[in-house]
Design a protein around this nucleic acid. Structure first.
Lengths: 349, 349
DNA sequence: GTGAAAGCGCTAACAG
DNA sequence: CTGTTAGCGCTTTCAC
């Protein structure tokens, strides 16, 4: 069906070796022969099969990408960055998603290894305690983590703790005192835990009491009543919510609105991720912004550098700068001690 | 480095043929032998290389996916659906994006063919006039189009013309008369053209004058002043905008808001795609909703049915139901002829 | 129940 | 400059 090098050789009247050379080292073959071979290739629509090459121990130029989900644009943005560079450099990508499930992570990695990928770019639920990654280390398979924020393994991410700290400082600078952090499942994500640590640190440093993170099921269509009650009622209800990611922030915003709360008048919201989409909201979502696409690109560059043996830097974890994207979801709270707004605390650059 | 079947054979003390059988037809080998081979496999961490199998003419179980971009969640949602089924059925996915660029479409398809994918799922800019697809037909490579709405090739999509028609009818039913359609580049997308046709039809049928579609550069951060002027000023300014996709609708909403227009009071908005994200907006975006994830799933099922030869239905194009997702971005316009609202026109189910 | 050997598409010595 | 040949990892007759 698909023509092979043999077909081309027969058609052109040369040996398969000559055809191979015509493809891989054109200058070593007689121009006339070359031309005939080329015509044969065109006539038959021949494309050399990577399988043959790969089997010969050539490089597969195949990279595996393992992501939790594409439903969260964070990962779609990363993948976009990776794909762009991969295509330009002649690599192919094999994609698998895991839905944050450890079994599927294992399965994905095994499948990809079996396929003989040269390297792996992945985001796992929890990088530090992941036996699979140790296996990769042992097996000598090159990989780079994305978003997983760990110093123990090759990784590219923002400094989640510091970024969360900066974000919460911004809320405090706007006069907020009762700030609550919302998260998916803390236990399931190393990032969420670091973000909580940053939140706690910022609170304590301002002489405030960090509250336990409120865990939200964020696939649910509605905020559960108990959560809503927690957010909306009582004299000690929070004035600001720090959400561990933008998608969660959007769901929460909708829930609050359905409960007739105005954002930011009744509640300020700060997200995390910096999704482009957030800026299209009304009011535009304030967010601790990570350069998602760039994280994907950086992970790619590092992986390739590893593969080519040109990676100079010895440090495992690479931290990309975050920024605080201000947005109208944060209101300033009048200072209790006077009429002024508390804008005096400066946030770090 | 990676152990091969030879290593296993040597370790277990049998021939490679026996190892192969132990893996592929366990019942044909002596239980004791089987056990020894299994231990060898575990001890060495052996995973059979798909390359060897594939080279033998076995199936590659590789499917190529070609998408314009992942920046638009429409495609991320489709891919999510595909990936889910593919993983469950033991196929691997090779992903390439094209940014709606014909050269990149060509390159993607060639790369994937060279890799010996068994089939292709793709969304191209324009399905009817695409020479590459004819080549696929000729070459006998199985493929299914997603979102491309054509009767000439295997495809899964909504009925774009009808869906747009239904959407615009809804606007009309709310009393709108001056309705403008906004699109990216009409010339670049078969879908956009069909949606325009649906718009025109609905307008004409209501005795209204369809306006030429207004083409918007939707990567631009701002709406250009001339567009804004067109939308915002004059007695004959539109009261409603039908946007050819949700992302465009969101950008337009932001632009209008920056120009101090209120949605939906000053302008009603109807999108197309039914992105989940749109419901999180404020006001929630009304949209002609396509079952994106399901489109991906349906395309997958069809591709597999083709490959297995179990595809019964002779029809090429498969149409999935759309629905009109009502949302607060559409305001009712008082009927000019009286004080009542024009809600009497019923939209089809 | 097991092994030897051929061959899938290709590249890389090695001859001629 | 070109052809012959071996071998990459695997499955699959065909013998034993």
């Amino acid at each position: 069906m698909t023509p092979t090098i043999k077909d081309v050789a027969a058609y052109a009247g040369f040996s398969i070796a000559t055809v191979s050379r015509a493809i891989n080292a054109p200058h070593t073959v007689n121009p006339v022969t070359l031309e005939k071979v080329r015509q044969a290739i065109n006539a038959l629509g021949f494309r050399p099969s990577p399988l043959g090459r790969q089997l010969r121990g050539e490089r597969t130029r195949l990279i595996g990408v393992v992501l939790p989900t594409l439903a969260n644009p964070v990962f779609a943005e990363c993948l976009q960055g990776i794909d762009e560079l991969a295509a330009a450099e002649g690599y192919r990508l094999m994609l698998m998603t895991t839905q944050y499930d450890a079994d599927r992570e294992r399965h994905a990695i095994e499948t990809l290894r079996a396929q003989r990928v040269e390297g792996l770019i992945l985001t796992v639920a929890d990088a530090d305690t992941h036996p699979l990654l140790d296996e990769l280390d042992q097996a000598g398979l090159t990989y780079v983590l994305m978003h997983n924020d760990t110093v123990r393994r090759p990784s590219v991410s923002v400094d989640n703790r510091q970024a969360a700290y900066d974000g919460v400082r911004t809320l405090i600078a706007h006069g907020h005192r009762r700030i609550l952090m919302l998260a998916g499942t803390l236990a399931a994500s190393d990032r969420a835990r670091l973000r909580y640590a940053g939140y706690s640190q910022a609170m304590q440093q301002a002489g405030l009491e960090p509250a336990p993170a409120l865990e939200i099921d964020f696939n649910a269509d509605e905020l559960v009543p108990s959560v809503l009650a927690h957010l909306a009622h009582g004299a000690s209800r929070p004035t600001a919510l720090f959400c561990s990611n933008d998608l969660l922030a959007m769901v929460v915003m909708r829930g609050l609105r359905r409960a007739q709360l105005d954002i930011p008048r009744d509640m300020s919201i700060l997200g995390f991720d910096g999704l482009a989409m957030g800026e299209l909201l009304s009011p535009p979502l304030a967010s601790v912004s990570a350069p998602n696409r760039e994280i994907g690109c950086a992970a790619w560059r590092r992986l390739v550098a590893y593969l080519d043996g040109t990676y100079a830097d010895a440090s495992l974890s690479q931290t990309l700068p975050h920024r605080i994207r201000e947005g109208a979801t944060i209101a300033a709270i009048p200072d209790a001690s006077g009429g002024r707004f508390m804008n005096t605390i400066r946030t770090p650059a």
